[in-house]
């Protein structure tokens, strides 16, 4: 009966951390693996568009790849009078203009696609074309109904945000959706967690882990998000992270021990929870607790 209730719920969970290399992908792929065995409609979205690598762990078949684009201006130099108004309207230094030399150029990498320059031009010299930002690929996980979505940014593009947003959209709202978030607390992270029901922050019990965990917590507080913490490499470092969690009443969800076996599996692109039943059980319990407290009924 209880299982039935869980199966009818929708939830979006982000796996995030301020510090890089704390185990976001380890946790995301392991949790995804456990959930796809226990539930029907599970989707993992790799939002770390600058360096997506969750896909390496998965046995998958490509369904489709979409190209994510942004509008950028092109300038018709026959119509351009070099008045400089488009340059003045641009907040991102994306239009380079030297009127005396009759030089005008768009720097696509700096353009945010806001369209202000095309509004500014009174001579019809600016039109817009599509500029590739990256790709979003959707995969089916073999022998399951579960899906994997990967956001991948094109090298040289200024911000991964558009590609991440396209990936979130492809992940959808139905069933269980897990986001492998990009590291840090800037725009890519913010966009990833904006619509989630719960954020799992993963950290390690070191001064670096604690310092960056605090930043993540402060950010999530301003966003009014529910969150809990997973401590990876437990047994390493010191107790300061534990003291911080206690002082601030932040739930400690699970601890993942500092264990060579995990590192061995990871280094071979094997999903740790598939080889370690204890870890798998811990993840399942953690998920059931999260969905009971934070999941939305699909009714």
């Amino acid at each position: 009966m209880e299982e039935l209730i869980l199966k009818n719920k929708n939830i979006k969970i982000a796996i995030a951390s301020g510090k890089g290399g704390t185990g976001k992908t380890l946790l995301s792929t392991s949790l995804f693996s456990v959930l796809k065995n226990n539930y029907d409609n599970v989707c993992l979205v790799d939002c770390d568009a600058e360096e997506p690598n969750s896909g390496i762990f998965l046995n998958k078949e490509l369904i489709s790849t979409d190209i994510v684009t942004q509008r950028v201006p092109v300038i018709d130099t026959d119509k351009c009078t070099y008045c400089g108004k488009c340059h003045d309207y641009c907040s991102y230094n994306a239009i380079f203009i030297l009127p005396p030399y009759k030089i005008i150029r768009v720097i696509n990498e700096l353009c945010h696609g806001c369209g202000a320059c095309t509004v500014a031009c009174e001579f019809g010299a600016l039109t817009e074309i599509d500029y590739e930002q990256g790709t979003v690929s959707e995969y089916k996980i073999k022998d399951t109904q579960s899906r994997f979505v990967e956001s991948r940014m094109k090298v040289g593009v200024m911000s991964p945000v558009d590609v991440i947003k396209a990936g979130l959209k492809k992940g959808g709202d139905k069933g269980i959706v897990i986001y492998d978030a990009p590291p840090g607390t800037s725009c890519p992270f913010i966009h990833t967690v904006t619509k989630v029901d719960f954020v799992v922050l993963i950290t390690e019990p070191t001064p670096f882990g604690l310092s960056d965990l605090k930043q993540s917590v402060e950010t999530l507080k301003t966003m009014d998000k529910n969150y809990g913490v997973v401590i990876n490499r437990a047994g390493l470092g010191n107790d300061d992270v534990y003291a911080y969690l206690k002082e601030n009443n932040i739930p400690l969800l699970i601890e993942i021990p500092f264990d060579r076996e995990i590192a061995n599996h990871y280094s071979k692109a094997e999903i740790a929870s598939e080889y370690m039943p204890d870890f798998s059980d811990k993840l399942n319990n953690m998920f059931e607790k999260i969905i009971k407290e934070h999941g939305n009924s699909s009714n």
């Binding site: 991102y92 230094n93 994306a94 380079f96 203009i97 005396p100 030399y101 720097i107 700096l110 200024m158």
Partner: peptide
Amino acid sequence: PNKNASNGAGPASVQMVAD
């Protein structure tokens, strides 16, 4: 003026110097 520009400081400075 481009010292603290959030992005595009290089091209903006080229423009200034070339000007």
